[in-house]
Design a protein around this nucleic acid. Sequence first.
DNA 1: CATGAATGAGTTTTCATTCAT
DNA 2: GATGAATGAAAACTCATTCAT
Lengths: 202, 202, 202, 202
Amino acid sequence: MNVHSLLVGTMDKRITILIAAETLLSERGFYGLSMKLLAQRADIAAGTIYCYFKNKDALLSELLIHINMQVANKLFENWTDTQSLQQKYEILWKNTFNSVLRNPQRLNVVDMLLFRPGHDRKEIKNILRSNVFSPLFDFYQQGIDNNTFHAWPIEALLSLSFDSAINLAKHILRQRLEKNEELVAQVRKASWLIIQKQNNQF
Amino acid sequence: MNVHSLLVGTMDKRITILIAAETLLSERGFYGLSMKLLAQRADIAAGTIYCYFKNKDALLSELLIHINMQVANKLFENWTDTQSLQQKYEILWKNTFNSVLRNPQRLNVVDMLLFRPGHDRKEIKNILRSNVFSPLFDFYQQGIDNNTFHAWPIEALLSLSFDSAINLAKHILRQRLEKNEELVAQVRKASWLIIQKQNNQF
Amino acid sequence: MNVHSLLVGTMDKRITILIAAETLLSERGFYGLSMKLLAQRADIAAGTIYCYFKNKDALLSELLIHINMQVANKLFENWTDTQSLQQKYEILWKNTFNSVLRNPQRLNVVDMLLFRPGHDRKEIKNILRSNVFSPLFDFYQQGIDNNTFHAWPIEALLSLSFDSAINLAKHILRQRLEKNEELVAQVRKASWLIIQKQNNQF
Amino acid sequence: MNVHSLLVGTMDKRITILIAAETLLSERGFYGLSMKLLAQRADIAAGTIYCYFKNKDALLSELLIHINMQVANKLFENWTDTQSLQQKYEILWKNTFNSVLRNPQRLNVVDMLLFRPGHDRKEIKNILRSNVFSPLFDFYQQGIDNNTFHAWPIEALLSLSFDSAINLAKHILRQRLEKNEELVAQVRKASWLIIQKQNNQF
DNA sequence: CATGAATGAGTTTTCATTCAT
DNA sequence: GATGAATGAAAACTCATTCAT
């Protein structure tokens, strides 16, 4: 066994543990994630987890990052440089909307992780923003810079446009609305129009 | 002591416990709410809590309802029948936005209560919707009925309009943006325009 | 209200409490007898019990005595002075046997009371023996004195004769044997014969 | 350390806990057996008990079985195949009588375990009867089959014969009678004679 | 690296008892 | 005598973490 295979093996076990943790969180909620049960699911001994993670809290923090990185990957799927801003926006919005709808548990899991005791939500949010989600901010900045979007702080734009994808998906999940493709397209289109500079003067 | 003062006294202790519970949830998170600590904060014996609430879960359910009723009261503050739809919307949006900004922890607490293990979120959501938040839905239905708003499901309208108040407030809290009154007004106005039927055809 | 009616009323409530206690013990076992539940059953406030009994243990001790007095009454039912020893024995044995069979819970209740923590079984046993059960000992002494029974210590005679009624009833209860009248009569007769001096020489 | 010593070590701790439990039950009664105190007596941490027993009830069930197996072993001590029925009976009776006398608390402990709330006595009784105590039933069946004993249900025979050993021992314990060897022998002999078919016709 | 037995502080909940009314 | 709200010690049980192997 060489160093490389060792590292790979090590990484695999880390990931195995993280995946088992997410599964347990979505299956059994925050209380359902005991280290003993996690070990069973990951097919290792309880003590072994502590070879890879300092403690439960560190494990959960890493899980949050791990999930966010996966989410970010989904978000920018199918983006290419030749697309227009609007094309990119539609893809971004659809990816987001569909991610929430297709894996609603994951939204819960992220919430559990964000609301867990002793966790400073701002800290990790900032870490993520400046890394995995930076293309999202770059996208909006570009729209601002070329006079397409209102010259507002990006968060203001997000609250009217990007966030609507998550909002609508949540409403659908809660309300058991039928997923009406036409309606979804209308909301998406509206959320695009509302941040256009030329269409709306306030 | 008469019956009335007795009831008031009894109610006071219930409320005292609920308030202490909310404080602890926002200060220490879901884990931080142990019944022993709660008793200390409420300045009573641990056993006394069980004179007022069957068990911890019942207490948390009541807390959720208690908070939602307070929130709903805030939401419709300053509404009068003579106001136009737009006036009502502005009040509603401002109330919501300010509620989140002024008591950001409360949003977290509600999430903790909704995400707590073994809790069926839909059940309570429906209870609340059909009661304390029904004016919100009535408001949107009215706008739809008189051809002011798009004839979409109310949730679709919410995701573009009302939700933006919460979204923006959250972004401000997370980002520590200065609360720029003009920007806030712009976002609010945009969120109003986007659901108008006459202004936008999709 | 005069002193007499007060005493009668007082006595009634004592008995009411004791009866409720026995009912709860047989219905719900030892754990099922909480003072709060007992108060509910007796239709009084929890604190009121302490007007009649010093504490739970004193209540249970009195219940044990109360039950034993009732049991003793059953035991000697239908005894008359004109009956022969053997007639008396048959009545005694039948009464005992039937008491156990008809109210098996009562046997359990007595056991619960005897095995309760901190209870010195010998103490109460002796109190009872020298009082409510003294006719039983008198009966055996009479048989010894007139040369009918073996001149053994009464306990030795009991272990072969009277005890068989309880033993058999217990076996029937545990085993769900059919209550075969003929068999019961045979056992009873055998238990009578075995203590006769003239029939058995050892 | 090999597998065998590991198993032995594990078994030892189980047994240590069971022995401590029996001691506490006999010393302090049913209430006196708290898991914390049990852990102290067994010189382990409170949580360790739950490595070996699912919960308190499972522990008590195992204790009942454990004790009954030990009791059964004592019961049939010194039996050999060449002995006559009467020889076997005398040994059986003496073993039983002495077991009760030598470890009177054990009788109480067994009763506590049988009478403990939520415990179905019949279930375990049947398990034991069909296993550890089956030689006892075989013994009586043999006596019935070869026309030595009355052809009654075994329980009827037990109530007159075997049970007398326990009855007498209990009476001696309660009464603090001197253990009179001659008297004991007489009772034992009487209990043997009473179940003989040839000696007694009813 | 991996194990899993052992730990013990921590949890929720019960309940006999008290005492101001 | 009667009440019942309040008490707080104690119960059974959980579980993140450690450490000898």
